[in-house]
Design a binder for these strands. Structure first.
Lengths: 250, 250
DNA sequence: TCATATTCGTTCATTTTTGTTCAAAATCAT
DNA sequence: ATGATTTTGAACAAAAATGAACGAATATGA
């Protein structure tokens, strides 16, 4: 069977059943597991499907993308720990900036008793904040449909209208030399601005982000405090030389 | 069974029965208790459900509640007519402001083919606009929890960063002498600003709003075009002396 | 209030899935 | 046919998901 035949067969069955296991596909094509894996990798690169643990599924189009947050909540437990620790740093009456993203999202349930005022650029956060009855301001801006984050010049301008006691930002990587980074330059600018208008900035990152370097730089390590999890003693030494490092639940 | 399959199965059943016990889910999925617990934890982190002792239930979604309320709203048919008529006034490529509120909400389904860019201060509108794939900007501001509308100084400032071809505003009353009015002065200011930054302004109001006078004045009748429904000939004469009046579907 | 029964979160071992490497087979160009 | 390139399948270590066990927390009913 030709490679392209396999590919179209996979996609055909996928549109029919919405998701397939690797085993399904093996039975379907009589190819080996390795080959199927390669197929899936390739088809995913072409945006024709999305790989999931155990198989593949159809990519989410416009619909639902936003309301159903498809971000698989990986390292959830760590994120919750980090979030909880971050909240413990708050004082009554603080005005804070809450960045869009899954880690900062986990802070919201703990905010209830803190009597803070929140400014956020995450549309996904808005609903949760409302449900907890937390006074909330939204930055303006263009909606990035993939993540429900507000970005662009308007967002940056909006932020400049506030002053924050503390900013809590999510990052995609932190690295001794290359600093805090994130894939989207637009988001990086937004984060930078939120940091500039805050007395203190906290970068939230689980351990998988260590030594990651993404495309767009947000700031140097020394420009913000780092809140993370499970840092080796060696790594702790490296980063705490440069900035305040808080390790949530050791 | 794939993890995502289980997840969507759980959510599907949950929307059907409003709440489920862990046992229900085990019978449904043939997975172990541990696995189900993990699923629930993850789905809760994504705000898709709320865990309760013994199972899970649907989260209370304020924004969604608003949307549902809007659907069961009064004079829906009139509002749809008015909205549809309003959309018919649009040209390809127009940049428009869409005010928060039930009547303007009805415009969204018809916008799909118009290739417009939308700026809105209604959080309830955002999800709908995204679902229809319409490029959307959100104004900044404070969230009025009752209605999901953005208001306040930041909203007004946000609006000044745009220029609209057309603004579509909802009003609570229109009156020959007292003009267009709405109960909340903050919202009135927002509407006034949206009108000021638009080449043309359209006030959308069903017939029950005629001769209503609310607390806060938005503008004089002559300051904006009026789109309404079922106007008596006498009333039509009165208002069309002052401004452009469009009667949707007579 | 207390005792009992569920349910919950956590930990750990097991199973499954994944990415990578490497050699064999197939395909291609000359 | 020969050598070069690509595709394939197998092996294996790393990562992720799963299920069972168990003490802690919570609900239930007397």
């Amino acid at each position: 069977m030709l490679t392209t035949e396999r590919h179209s067969l996979i996609l055909e069955q996928l549109t029919k059943y919405k998701n397939l296991t690797i085993k399904d596909i093996i039975e379907l094509t009589y190819a080996s597991e390795s080959t199927i894996r390669r197929d899936l990798t390739e088809l995913e690169a072409q945006d024709k499907l999305v790989r999931i643990h155990g198989g593949a599924t159809l990519p989410k189009r416009k619909l639902q993308e936003f309301s159903i947050k498809e971000k698989s909540t990986k390292n959830l437990h760590e994120k919750v720990q980090i979030a909880q620790y971050a909240v413990s740093l708050l004082n009554k009456g603080d005005c804070i900036f809450l960045d869009a993203g899954t880690t900062t999202m986990q802070m919201i349930p703990f905010l209830k008793d803190k009597e803070v005022v929140v400014v956020t650029n995450g549309l996904t956060h808005v609903e949760a904040l409302m449900n907890y009855g937390i006074p909330t301001y939204v930055t303006g801006g263009y909606i990035k449909t993939k993540t429900g984050a507000l970005i662009g010049a308007q967002t940056i301008q909006s932020i400049s209208n506030y002053r924050f006691d503390k900013s809590f930002l999510g990052v995609n990587g932190f690295h001794k030399q290359f600093g805090y980074t994130t894939p989207d330059p637009e988001e990086a600018s937004t984060k930078r601005q939120a940091s500039a208008y805050a007395l203190e900035t906290f970068m939230l990152a689980d351990q998988t982000k260590r030594n990651n370097v993404s495309f767009a730089k947000i700031a140097d390590i020394s420009d913000a405090a780092l809140i993370t999890c499970h840092l080796s003693e060696e790594a702790y030494k490296i980063f705490s030389d440069l900035t305040t490092v808080k390790v949530a639940n050791q």
